[in-house]
Design a protein around this nucleic acid. Structure first.
Lengths: 171, 171
DNA sequence: TGCTAATTTCATTTTTTTTTGAAAACTTTG
DNA sequence: CAAAGTTTTCAAAAAAAAATGAAATTAGCA
């Protein structure tokens, strides 16, 4: 018996193309990890992305072979990124999860929620730099002033371009 | 004696504004960590960014209070990102390091070296997805095909926009 | 309301990443 | 070409991040 895969639930094979699912999980695990997200988050999204039906948490757990805790945490993260949403399934009291597949929206949200707050605190830190310019030595102060100016331009550019970027993406 | 700072070398105070240096290190540690770089890399760049003179490795070590190994590793990383370069100092056989402060260039290089290779392998993975489409059930296959198409658009958009972005940045 | 299934939380364990420190490998120069 | 200074490498230690699992909480239902 080759590959006693941890991914093997009671879902019928008709419902899911296993190879595709595995490629998808792989794909999103990598993509998410580029964005600094843990493995489990990528796995869950990857599974849901190619799922024809919304999946309840325990299905996610058994198909991916991860713990309930991980699944709960991961789904919480994905919900906060608006990368998944729940859908009501009549006669079942479990939450069923569905992947949000509009990457443009996902991207816009990611920039707003994860990047922009850092830009804000960066601006504050730059202000503090200006405050701490000694003012004793003109020569070196000018050097520092130039460096600070570059940082300002950087954050300004970032603050404008990143949000614009999401709108630009026509995919 | 408040603050027995680990950052205290033999460099004269006139040469460096300590507060500024600390803010700078803080700033870049955070920025770099957003890009997935370890703390030490941010520290080194932050130190060099506001240094009026190129610094040899042992100065970096003593000013930041990090190990030689970390410094060597961190500088290697920064060199590969073209975020620092060495400058020759007559009568001194140590390498002296200087921060590259043109963020546009840094950014362009980062995209080329760190992001684009991932886009390439993403494309390959999508091709493999298409190959593994079972072809038995038309209904679900169409669903999968749509999902795959979205991924293609995503990588295409990324592959074009990211490099363009660097050029766009006028800062 | 009480019972049970479903979910969240969080202390502990596991895994991964980063740093350290010392040995090895260069490199310059006397 | 040897000796001293400099830098790199890499196994081991430390720190940080993520996953687990079980207890606590919440929510739906009879």
């Amino acid at each position: 018996m080759p590959h006693p895969s941890p991914i093997s639930g009671n879902q019928s094979v008709r419902e899911s193309n296993r190879d595709l699912e595995i490629e998808s999980i792989d794909f999103f695990v990598r993509m998410m990890s580029m964005l600094g997200m843990p493995r489990s988050v990528g796995e869950i999204y990857g599974l849901l992305y190619f799922s024809t039906t919304p999946l309840p948490m325990d299905q996610i757990v058994s198909r991916l072979g991860i713990s309930l805790g991980s699944a709960s945490q991961g789904l919480k993260t994905l919900r906060s990124l608006k990368a998944v949403r729940t859908s009501y399934v009549p006669g079942d009291r479990r939450d069923h999860y569905l992947a949000e597949t509009e990457f443009r929206r996902l991207f816009a949200n990611f920039i707003k929620e994860e990047i922009m707050p850092h830009m804000e605190s960066a601006k504050e830190r730059i202000e503090r730099m200006e405050d701490s310019l000694s003012g004793t030595d003109e020569q070196t102060d000018e050097f520092y002033q130039i460096r600070i100016e570059k940082l300002k331009k950087l954050t300004r550019a970032g603050g404008r371009l990143l949000p614009a970027l999401a709108g630009l993406l026509k995919f």
